[in-house]
């Protein structure tokens, strides 16, 4: 038998090199992680790792960036029992990492196309490595759009990077908020309004969408209305995941295992299921 992947159920130790607060109050934070001993298992944009805190539990988190010199960056929202405990960890502490698992964003298939990156809230994090990739290989892509929506201005992630991207002339960055405050001078409304502005060649576009399911539902409707074919729209799906390798059963969505058949799917594979509640 050919060489097997290492035991997928056993985490490896990774050191938290640094912790960066991404939102005021630390509700969202990024870890730069480095494996203790051995090489980093480099993931693809869109893939996820299972992050384990001793005795507390484990959560699936998409890769938020591939750091320099063999580090890995994950961006985590303090939203449940495990992530709440993770928010209390400091640089120098160690966690367990299993992965990377799952399917990747179609960065190769998108070459020669317009690229539409549609993000909602924390959904910008799994798309961030795509932005890094397409900007690092800019000549391989046609127009690039980043359309990002959050609830309110205070929820905007990666502000410094967004400003840098916005300053470039080779990527269109548009940010909208559901509710503005006095300081906000940008767009107000849901992210689908940014899609409806167009500017891309729909037949020749690859769209990658990541955000809450309801946001993705409306984003898909807008993209299809603009003429982007279902097979050229990719979504990153979220379900409960425990084993990440297809045998705990939790992440099933119809016949798909989100962990191994996804999390990134072309929409034409999800379409028959997407409007069924509680599937």
């Amino acid at each position: 038998m050919s060489a097997r992947p290492r035991d997928p159920m056993l985490p490896r130790s990774y050191r938290i090199e640094s912790v960066e607060s991404e939102l005021p109050g630390g509700e969202v934070f990024s870890w730069t992680l480095r494996p203790r001993g051995g090489e980093l298992e480099v993931g693809q944009p869109g893939q996820f790792n299972m992050l384990y805190q001793l005795g507390i539990g484990e959560v699936p988190i998409s890769i938020s960036a591939l750091g320099e010199d063999g580090t890995l960056i994950h961006t985590i929202r303090d939203v449940g029992g495990v992530t709440r405990n993770m928010a209390a960890l400091s640089a120098g502490e160690e966690i367990g990492v299993r992965g990377p698992f799952g399917t990747a964003w179609p960065v190769a298939a998108a070459e020669g196309h317009d690229v539409l990156l549609v993000a909602g809230g924390i959904g910008l994090a799994p798309l961030r490595p795509v932005i890094h990739h397409v900007l690092a290989n800019r000549e391989r892509y046609r127009r690039i759009f980043l359309l990002y929506g959050t609830r309110q201005p205070a929820d905007i992630l990666f502000r410094k990077e967004l400003e840098r991207w916005r300053g470039r002339f080779d990527i269109d960055v548009a940010v909208t908020v559901d509710r503005a405050d006095a300081s906000w001078r940008g767009d107000v409304g849901v992210v689908t309004r940014l899609i409806e502005r167009g500017g891309f060649d729909p037949r020749n576009s690859i769209a990658m969408v990541c955000g809450p399911e309801v946001m993705m539902r409306f984003a898909v409707m807008s993209l299809e209305r603009r003429g982007v074919p279902a097979r050229q729209i990719y979504l990153s799906m979220e379900r409960n995941m425990q084993c990440a390798v297809g045998y705990c059963g939790h992440c099933q969505y119809g016949g798909h295992f989100i962990c191994k058949d996804g999390p990134v799917f072309p929409y034409d594979r999800l379409e028959p299921l997407f409007d069924v509640r509680e599937l």
């Binding site: 001793l54 005795g55 507390i56 539990g57 484990e58 425990q242 045998y247 705990c248 059963g249 939790h250």
Partner: peptide, 11 residues
């Protein structure tokens, strides 16, 4: 039926 969950516990 093959579904399972993982439980973590610490001292």
């Amino acid at each position: 039926c093959f579904c399972s969950s993982v439980h973590d516990s610490a001292d």
